[in-house]
């Protein structure tokens, strides 16, 4: 299966009522790359996907290229993209085979080739034996596979997935996430995947595009996004981080006057990025707070702590810890090189 590179230049989207769903943005996606567009609802991620798909046209100054083809003015049917919709959008009047073969029948592909393709695709997504079922007889997971098979039947240059797992229940979602990740690896197709779920993004992406209010907040590998969030928004959106106001001077990071770690990059006001795994209860620790709630999860105990003169934070502790709601505890850093965010 081929994979085209995508070049978006100055793509913005203003709807007729004046809402700016997307501010001008440019993005390069390499052939065969798996890119996840991640963001809260209303951030413009679906609009961006629909512009790549050809379901929306960008405002006049924008352009979309697949490799060297200018596809800006082409509608979706002329772009050769495969798309998996959040609702699956399967054709209810056709069978599973009818759905998967729809693109081939449009092109009047010979019957024998259709049969071969159907068998290949059905076995690839794991729905052998269901070919003659009606859509309403399928489970959610099966529908999702049929939708993927139909998108692949187009032999797309680019595969677009719009929150494909959101409609499934949590347990199935996790299983299909792993399965989808391995299918995408086997395909080697350029894939753009839209989601609001960071676990999905982490599991599937070569690169993640984090979006916020119509603009790109950060582009990077899952590692970069997690370890080096570029803005408070990204830090808070990925991994439930709390931002603790701090000050960098004299080669160290200071919170409320207390030196908590060494740091020499910058001077001035900064934030300490505190994820649940970054702090531990420590009688010698530099920070102090009151536990407002403690929840036992079996594998860990999660403490909600309000720092003295500071923000509320979340700290995960071993499940057997004796700290409970109402206690006051001191906290220390797990390692000596904390993640620092400059405002």
């Amino acid at each position: 299966m081929g994979g085209a590179g995508i070049h978006l230049t100055d793509c913005a989207k203003t709807f007729p009522d004046g809402t700016r769903a997307l501010l001008p943005l440019s993005l390069e996606i390499a052939p065969r790359e798996k890119v996840v567009i991640l963001g809260p609802s209303g951030c413009g991620k679906t609009t961006l996907l629909r512009i790549i798909a050809g379901l929306e046209t960008p405002d006049l100054e924008g352009s979309v290229y697949f490799d060297d083809d200018d596809v800006t003015g082409l509608p979706i049917e002329a772009r050769r993209v495969g798309m998996v919709f959040q609702s699956y959008a399967l054709f209810p009047t056709l069978t599973v085979a009818g759905n998967i073969l729809f693109p081939l029948r449009l092109k009047k592909v010979p019957k024998e080739i259709q049969e071969t393709r159907l068998a290949q695709l059905a076995s690839f997504v794991g729905i052998e034996g269901l070919e003659h079922r009606h859509i309403h007889e399928l489970s959610g997971g099966q529908k999702q596979r049929v939708a993927l098979a139909r998108a692949l039947a187009v032999e797309p240059r680019i595969l677009l997935l719009d929150e494909p797992l959101t409609a499934l229940d949590a347990a199935l979602r996790e299983r299909l996430r792993a399965e989808l990740s391995s299918l995408l690896d086997q395909l080697g197709v350029t894939a753009i995947y839209v989601t609001h779920d960071q676990a999905e993004a982490m599991a599937l992406a070569d690169r993640i595009v984090v979006m916020d209010r119509g603009a790109i907040a950060q582009v990077g590998t899952p590692f970069e996004i997690y370890e080096k969030p570029a803005s408070p928004f990204v830090a808070k959106f990925i991994g439930a981080a709390a931002l603790i106001p701090a000050h960098a001077h004299d080669g160290g990071i200071h919170v409320q006057g207390q030196r908590i770690a060494s740091y020499a990059d910058k001077r001035g006001d900064v934030f300490l990025v505190a994820r649940p795994e970054d702090l531990v209860p420590d009688d010698e620790g530099p920070l102090q707070g009151e536990v407002t709630a403690a929840t036992y999860f079996g594998d860990r105990k999660r403490l909600h702590i309000t720092l003295t003169d500071g923000p509320p934070i979340i700290v995960d502790t071993p499940p057997d810890t004796s700290i409970d709601a109402g206690d006051t505890t001191r906290l220390g850093l797990v390692n000596d090189t904390p993640r620092i965010l400059t405002p």
Binding site: A53, I76, E77, M83, A89, F91, P92, P103, L106, R150
Partner: peptide, 23 residues
């Protein structure tokens, strides 16, 4: 008729009118 079903037919290569009449 859900709009995305028509869009899905177009993603399969059907023009708007064919998508409407076939699906």
């Amino acid at each position: 008729i859900p709009g995305d079903v028509i869009e899905a037919a177009r993603a399969c290569g059907a023009s708007s009118w064919r998508a409407f009449s076939f699906v």
